[in-house]
Amino acid sequence: MTKETTYAIVVEKLTKRYGELLAVNDISFTVGKGEVFALLGPNGAGKTTSVEIIDTIRAPTSGKVTLLGMDVTKRKYDIVRRIGVLPQGFSSFDRITVRETLQFYLRLFCCMNTDIDALIELVNLKDKTKEQYKNLSGGLRQRLGIAIALVNDPEVVFLDEPTTGLDPRARREVWEVLLGLKEKGKTVFLTTHYMEEAELLADTVAIISKGEIIAMGSPGELIENNTKYLDLTLQSVDEKAFEVVRKMGFDPLLDNHRDIKVRVEHTDDVQKILSAIKDAGALYLGLDVRKPNLEEVFLKLTGEALHDGYVEEKGAE
């Protein structure tokens, strides 16, 4: 078995230039069958360019992409029948209803056996079948876009920033649909700049910055490999506790003049701090121990924090 047949997607030394601008710089990775793969990065990092090359919308400058065993630059028409795509900023015909839109795409794929009602149920649009596209909210539109991406029962589904611009509730509704896809065992290629989205949905996350993949692995692996600490917060402490922690050799911070925040390397350290505070007769009302997340991984790897898709340099106000 070759690499091309083992994996759903094989990307090798992929590069894309727009004139002088190097949008994607020599990236390589594989996506296994049934895997949910997230390309995570800020706006302008090269996520959309990468996914659009893989799903046949755009041509690469150099490198090779094999999708379901086929070269994307040579077998577009065979590939598009076996994939589903939700492009970035998805839009549809304003005056066409939800059901008519799905029927339209069904006919394009000639999949007359697809159960439209099941599809509508999957994306939870049962009450909106007669609604025209222009009357749908952002979240409903994205769910329709996902349903369209599934009309041909694709082997690989590409979702380019499926929750960008949605409010938290609509975002969670889309996540539920995507978790449903994951349960069905679909191969999903997702791009996002939302850390928690990648962490919640993806089996594998590739962090992309300035056109290059800087880290890749499961969310757990990325956190484990890049952040070796825990954040302990002690709520409503008295000043005595602060001194106790400081004297133990840690570097505590007083937050809002009430909480102590302290970064520790092992869970044993948490136990030691709590015992020392107790022995000193100091008080605290609550405690929180938090593992780092992808946000901290991104900050560590790039030196930049990510807010709403845009980067903010470390230490910037």
Binding site: I57, V80, Q88, G89, S91
Partner: peptide, 13 residues
């Protein structure tokens, strides 16, 4: 401009 052509490009039309 609305991106519908881009979506259609990922169908067999």
């Amino acid at each position: 401009q609305k991106g519908i052509i881009r979506k259609l490009s990922t169908t067999p039309i």
